[in-house]
Design a protein around this nucleic acid. Structure first.
Lengths: 220, 220
DNA sequence: ACCTGAACACCGTTCAAGT
DNA sequence: ACCTGAACACCGTTCAAGT
């Protein structure tokens, strides 16, 4: 049977990372098991551990890979505001497409993935006119907002993917639960429930970026 | 031996959640194992599963508990700006003290924990003068920033706790690595390296809150 | 109702042995 | 150098059996 024949071509870290990404995209972080990887690559455990230190290393490498792909597309000679919005939205969409990346990014802050993000955001904020002494704080804040919002959104998508209910049913259910709350005790959430159903995640995310940029503009 | 005698008082979800919180605070999310719980509470698996659906339920209940404790202290009749800073800092400090809460909060958005947070932030932004049609976007953005920044900070603390190196050694090591980067390819990160050693996480976090509030103020 | 603990079906990782 | 796969030390969860 073809399934049990040993692979003839050589294995590589790149190949393993690619297979890991496929598993992660298909079923979330829990789907990346060494056993699934060996069958997927029709090889043994030792082969994988020969190219990769452990599961955590593999997860980190896959994250770096995904982020590097989106960050290389960053255009620098556009208007800084447009470029910042583009970078933010690019990260949002990438994390939406690869939800496991969201949780992973906060794990190892010195990794290439986060470095690329800070560099792009910091440089664009510089071009945007943020004074030098405020630049680090501003970049940190914007990166935290982007990753926080994208991570939350990704977690929501993950829940939707797992539960097999579709998006509008899910939002309706949450909205219904929220509007059932006591308006005296929860005035804000009670009111927000009506807006929940028709809201667009990407638009809300960009609205947040704009609020942040308006705040940053007051520093100039 | 006392260790193996069966407990005489009854078990309860509250007691189990408390024990789980102790384990989580002591060794992070990986430290919460059902085996550790049974020995900690000197009981069996069935006893725990009688009060709690599964490990995820326990993790969620512990998170709700921690967040409820910090959110009940929110003062509402202060200046909205001060109150917002206080809520933000309270969450930051709580997540710093219980790092596992950071990752957990993004997992189940309809849970009481996140509900309390949205309600407080939304109400305070309303008092701050944010126009109604922008309120949901603004609250979402601020909550995402708070949780993103606090979560990242908590992840860093977790790494420090695991690696047994102290904070200033760790920051020095990262700063050294960053200043070794090519200044042409990484102008921002290269420059930021010098500021890394003396920066204060809480102050940087509050600077981000202020940037955000300045942006929100332009909506009024 | 509340609890016990052996058993089950999984994990990641190691390592002697092969080519 | 590169790879195999049995074995090990863990997991969360179940469930027949006890009080």
């Amino acid at each position: 049977m073809a399934k049990t024949t040993r692979r003839t071509d050589g294995l590589s870290k790149e190949l393993i990372v690619k297979a890991a990404t496929d598993l992660l995209d298909g079923g979330g972080e829990a789907a990346l098991t060494l056993r699934a990887l060996t069958t997927h690559l029709s090889t043994g455990y030792g082969a994988i551990y020969h190219h990769v230190a452990n599961r955590g290393d593999l997860l980190a490498a896959a994250t770096d890979d995904v982020i590097a792909r989106v960050m290389t597309g960053v255009v620098i000679d556009a208007d800084p505001r447009d470029a910042l919005r583009a970078v933010a939205l690019g990260l949002f969409d990438t994390i939406d497409a690869h939800p496991w990346v969201g949780a992973q990014l906060s794990r190892e802050p010195w990794r290439p993935a986060l470095l690329e993000i800070y560099e792009s955001v910091g440089r664009l904020l510089d071009a945007f006119g943020v004074p030098e002494q405020a630049l680090v704080d501003a970049a940190g804040a914007l990166v935290h907002y982007i990753l926080g919002a994208a991570g939350q959104n990704a977690a929501n998508s993950q829940i939707l993917a797992d539960s097999e209910t579709d998006r509008s049913d899910f939002l309706s259910a949450v909205a219904a639960r929220w509007s059932r709350l006591d308006p005296d005790q929860y005035p804000f959430v009670h009111k927000a429930a009506t807006q929940l159903r028709e809201h667009d995640d990407r638009e809300q995310f960009l609205a947040g970026v704009d609020i942040f940029l308006a705040g940053v503009a007051t520093l100039r």
